[in-house]
Amino acid sequence: MTVEHYYAPKHLDEALEVLRAGNATILAGGTDVMPQSESGKTPLRKTLVNIRRIAELTGIRLAKNEVRIGALTTISEMMANDLIRKHFPILAESGDHFASEQIRNAGTLGGNVCNASPAGDTLVPMLALDAVVELAAKPNGSVETHTTPLGSFLVGPGKTRRAQGELLVAIRIPVPPAGQVQRFFKFGTRPALDISAIAIGLAAVKTKGVLSHVRLAYGAVAPAIMRGSKTEAVLEGKRLTPELIEQAAQAAHDEVKPISDVRASDWYRRELMHNIVKRMLIDVHEH
């Protein structure tokens, strides 16, 4: 379909007004929208809304006990931000594995969430860090916002719970508790410009060798980024020992539901889950 209307609003209010009419494609960094429309996978809709000029969607701020990241924050901006680097080092680290420098300069964090790729690089650490997304809409003439946990927002490949007329305006991540350790690992077959075969994010509070508040997030092993709840249960409140680590690695291997594609087979993805979760926990145990 050919684009018939193009809007580039400067204010959130205007953007939501346009979105309310429906049948619109939202354009931010364009690093997913453009190749997907070019290949015919997701054709552009009649209305194209460029949200790039909306100042309300930018900026990273500390408010109360959480960091609010504007949806238009690029991957590069996120990586360079002091608040992110201090509180969420694995989020900054995931940016380092994200496509190429050029794409990181254009692609946005909000876009990475809404694209909802099962292999989305920033989604794995954000899910491990208990991120919530903030959505805005203008159903009855005034702007309304609400939040929803990232884990329930992501439904499947390219699918989210964002309703028609809604715009993702920010991602909010709680400031980590004292003593939290974070780990991130992305396995692609090469060091740059690769799509994950698997990705793992880990956040947990470590007290005298015991892990609590354990959060594990897995990428590219299910239709959407998933929490490793069975692995978490193995670890929660326990002292890390070689036996426990092996048990957790086995749980990770068993609880994922990967597919076979041109990047990796399901068997290999499970093997990697086992081996990498094990290496991560040994590393947490030793440091």
Binding site: R190, A192, D194, V262
Partner: peptide, 16 residues
């Protein structure tokens, strides 16, 4: 041909 793009047909990149 299942991987007709540089995304999935992997040429060696500089760091390798």
């Amino acid at each position: 041909v299942k991987n007709p793009a540089f995304r999935d047909y992997k040429l060696v990149t500089a760091p390798e």
